[in-house]
């Protein structure tokens, strides 16, 4: 049991360690990731990234996809334990985008985006090429849930239809 807990802790540390590399620096107050929207799943195979930049600077955008691998280990005493490892792999890395105005947007459309968890990370690059800030937004790409009917298929339409037909037959078109 202790071993399982230890392995679980290692896994948790690995997850946060991996995330730690993603969220290394503080967010840039002059950068806003407008899209994807926070806490809103994307139900599409294309992902629009829109970054609002509120001063002249250089940014670099990276999109990381979460990959979870599970490994089962059988101990000498026959105990089976599972190790969950989370890694973040880059699926898109932009060129440096430099703006000279006080307001501009960096936009990018990613096609054929698979379902899963993603992190959109925007690095603010200093004049010496070093990363000054890291602003990020996590997003989940999920299958679209079936949408509810906008117009109920009850008999109101049929009633309306009947009434309209009746009125037309009485008064003409």
């Amino acid at each position: 049991m202790k071993r399982i807990v230890a392995i679980f802790l290692v896994a948790v540390i690995m997850i946060f360690g991996a995330c730690g590399t993603v969220f290394a620096a503080e967010a840039d107050p002059n950068i806003t990731i407008v899209n994807p929207v926070a806490d809103t799943p994307v139900n599409s195979t294309s992902l629009l990234i829109s970054v609002k930049i509120m001063r002249p600077q250089t940014i670099k955008t990276t999109v990381l996809k979460e990959t979870v691998t599970t490994q089962s280990t059988v101990a000498a005493d026959g105990t089976v334990s599972e190790t969950r490892t989370v890694t973040w792999n880059s699926v898109f890395e932009s060129e440096n985008f430099t703006t000279t105005t006080n307001l501009s947007f960096y936009t990018k459309k990613l096609e054929n985006v698979a379902q899963g968890n993603y992190i959109v990370r925007v690095d603010t690059i200093g004049s010496d090429g070093k990363v000054l800030y890291q602003t990020s937004r996590s997003v989940t790409v999920a299958e679209k849930e079936s949408e509810a009917e906008v117009f109920s298929s009850n008999s109101s339409g049929a009633v309306n239809n009947f009434l309209q037909s009746l009125l037309k037959s009485i008064f003409g078109n």
Partner: peptide
């Protein structure tokens, strides 16, 4: 979707 505000009008903007 680009600027974050909600608008009364539907304005479509090309990504590229």
């Amino acid at each position: 979707q680009y600027v974050g505000n909600d608008f009364a009008e539907r304005i479509f903007i090309p990504s590229i």
